[in-house]
Design a protein around this nucleic acid. Sequence first.
DNA 1: CCTGGACTTGACGTCGGTGTCAAGACCTAC
DNA 2: GTAGGTCTTGACACCGACGTCAAGTCCAGG
Lengths: 125, 125
Amino acid sequence: MRIGELAQLAGTSTRSLRYYEAQGLLPARRAPNGHREYDESDLRLVQEIRSLLEIGFALEETRPFVECLRAGNRAGDVCPASIEVYRRKLAELDKGITRLNEIRSRLAAQLAAVQERPHPHQCEH
Amino acid sequence: MRIGELAQLAGTSTRSLRYYEAQGLLPARRAPNGHREYDESDLRLVQEIRSLLEIGFALEETRPFVECLRAGNRAGDVCPASIEVYRRKLAELDKGITRLNEIRSRLAAQLAAVQERPHPHQCEH
DNA sequence: CCTGGACTTGACGTCGGTGTCAAGACCTAC
DNA sequence: GTAGGTCTTGACACCGACGTCAAGTCCAGG
């Protein structure tokens, strides 16, 4: 299949696919006329990339998964490098969640304080 | 005081202060020689901006707080517009926390699955 | 006078993952 | 042959909050 079809199947754009190729994530065979040629394994690569991006991975972080798939594994996350990225991401998520929760409680407290004892003010807004 | 001193007191850069001014958040009086002149109320403005930025507000979202302060209120969050932003941000935080928690559990499950039954693979990574 | 530090404005660079446009090549159908 | 769709590469635009450099002004100290 060609790039337009792959983009449509993967739910993304041709622009993105060319970008992934430029980053070395999605090598493409070429037809005699220069057009990129893909197959189902490429579709799986793109799907792996997209699903990881969607949950907050940076494109660069998907590389171990993609290489794992290209190495012939049936899943991108069975390789040690991928698992390591999983761990890192999990730790990042924990930090992010903790941080958001702290901010949330501070903000909620502030909001409650402001609302329950409204100060006299000359605010025009 | 001049811009360098204000930046230092507020723990930021002169670049940022000029940027805030360009966005209409931090108007500055000028000395006869053209230099910006600030006082303690400006320091409070900048502190309000910085603390809101730090907890994830966009610069534009700090505007109601800044204007509230400039209107003479002793706190930036006593005005209705500020409170409205508080509410919006709180809702955003809730969505963000929920999303991160969902991703976290998916990721943790995936990691556990991969680790507890390692597949045979020809992975080189 | 000269040096040097702080100030001024203006403008370009950064990061990431694209969108979008341009100009041309290819191929199919009519 | 020509219209139109898909493809090619290349390059600029975007967002936001700045960093950083350039060239010039202002002022105090020696």
